[in-house]
């Protein structure tokens, strides 16, 4: 199960942020923001090498003492970040990848909602619920 998930806009501002333990949110925000360094680097290098543009999953960004941070970026440069506890061995690369896919799909659904203003932070309850579901691996 993931401990934190974030959606970050193309201007690198947070659009959605959640974590299992609300007390740790600040720390996670710092970490997630810091991990954008790696995302940016990967995006810059990715275009050079001409890698498969359909591959949105960026893989492991940071492997810290306590957490592992994974990244995923859409073609419109919306970034998804998932943080997983380092001790959690049940989540492999594939599981994380599928979590990202689900997250991307519900994000796309949310953007389609006419009442959502693009580029604004997301604060829909049902979206939140779906994200929590994805994080818990359901």
């Amino acid at each position: 199960m993931a401990v934190c998930a974030a959606i970050i806009g193309k201007d690198n501002s947070p659009k959605y942020f959640t974590c299992i333990n609300p007390d740790e949110e600040l720390g996670f925000q710092y970490k997630v923001l810091s991990s954008l360094d790696v995302v940016e680097e990967k995006l810059n290098n990715g275009t050079k090498s001409g890698s498969d543009s359909r591959e949105l999953y960026l893989g492991l960004l940071y492997s810290l003492e306590r957490h592992k941070i994974y990244g995923y970026v859409t073609n419109t440069k919306i970034k998804f970040i998932i943080v997983i506890d380092s001790t959690n061995t049940s989540l492999r690369d594939n599981e994380v990848r599928s979590m990202f896919r689900k997250l991307h799909s519900i994000y796309a659904d949310n953007v389609c909602n006419p009442f959502y203003i693009p580029d604004e932070p997301i604060n829909s309850k049902s979206f939140d619920k779906s994200v929590k579901n994805i994080m818990s691996g359901a």
């Binding site: 201007d11 690198n12 501002s13 947070p14 942020f17 949110e25 600040l26 925000q29 710092y30 923001l33």
Partner: peptide, 10 residues
């Protein structure tokens, strides 16, 4: 500049 308001607030 990157609009991380909660971090900014902190």
């Amino acid at each position: 500049t990157e609009n991380w308001w909660s971090l900014l607030t902190d």
